[in-house]
């Protein structure tokens, strides 16, 4: 094949497996009518999962995702992504721009949905290796150490050890939605037990949700995409308060002398 042929086949043409809008006829996602079938008969999260994965999930998985997003919806502007939404509100940036900025901020290596790829990679590899006979201790101890503690993706969070969201969402998943514990979640529990015993570190929500969703057959890439705006409701809250209920500039204003300058002394440009 001439190398340019690859691009020529997409020039002026969109090829998609997703669906789309036929003007005057309707909108489809993987052959499902958006307005005739999905809108009246399915929750939002079912459509989100369908749009990403191509499969309509069983209803309880959509309910589980709703619970997960609620668990991530902290209306507290001290959370970094929420603070950015609040700053947007305080300068009267538009809600869409501000909330998008907050969501971008949660694309982080230490909190929020940005942690999902590494967490998926860890638990998938750990589960496979455990099945081959590698011990939990070896699996944990081979991770890079941070201040002497294995920095295991999915088992560290800023501010606190442990995660108050894990218990409630696990109870909801098992007791209300009747999900079982698959191989990844069982592995996640083993790692949790080892880290708690040896280092007093515990599973965080990213560790839980990635193990749970891998057990549901989702791929790491699908989990990352579907979860990408999971922090948004907290950002909405913090934007709305500053934009609608407070005068401009009211979120943590700084005086000149609130800043410690540690740079070079005043100097002049050498002309």
């Amino acid at each position: 094949m001439n190398r340019a042929e690859h691009w020529d086949q997409f020039r002026g043409v969109i090829r998609t497996r997703k669906g789309g809008w036929q003007i005057g006829k309707g909108v489809t996602s993987y052959g499902h009518s958006l307005l005739g079938e999905l809108m009246p008969g399915h929750p939002f999260f079912s459509v989100l999962i369908l749009n990403v994965t191509g499969t309509l999930p069983e209803p309880r998985l959509a309910r589980w995702f709703e619970a997960f997003f609620i668990a991530m919806s902290w209306p507290d502007p001290r959370m970094w992504c929420n603070f950015i939404g609040a700053l947007g509100g305080s300068v009267r940036a538009t809600p869409i721009a501000s909330i998008a900025a907050g969501v971008c901020a949660s694309d982080s290596a230490i909190y929020g949905p940005g942690t999902i790829p590494k967490s998926c990679e860890f638990i998938a590899t750990a589960t496979a290796d455990y099945a081959l006979g590698v011990s939990v201790g070896d699996i944990v101890e081979r991770e890079q150490k941070l201040r002497g503690v294995p920095a295991v993706p999915g088992y560290y969070r800023p501010f606190a050890k442990g995660d108050e969201r894990v218990g409630p969402i696990h109870t909801y998943a098992t007791k209300v939605l009747a999900f079982g514990e698959g191989a990844h979640l069982q592995m996640a529990q083993r790692v949790h037990d080892y880290l708690e015993r040896e280092y007093q570190e515990r599973m965080n929500l990213a560790g839980y949700i990635t193990a749970f969703l891998l057990d549901q057959g989702m791929t790491p890439a699908q989990i990352h995409v579907v979860s990408s705006f999971c922090t948004n409701a907290g950002i909405h809250a913090c934007y709305a308060e500053q934009a609608n209920d407070r005068p401009p500039g009211s979120i943590l204003p700084l005086r000149c002398d609130d800043i410690d300058y540690i740079g070079v002394a005043p100097r002049t440009v050498d002309r």
């Binding site: 800023p158 606190a160 050890k161 442990g162 995660d163 894990v166 218990g167 696990h170 996640a188 515990r202």
Partner: peptide, 9 residues
Amino acid sequence: IKDTNVTPR
């Protein structure tokens, strides 16, 4: 994991 307690880091 259901009994996870949370302590300040």
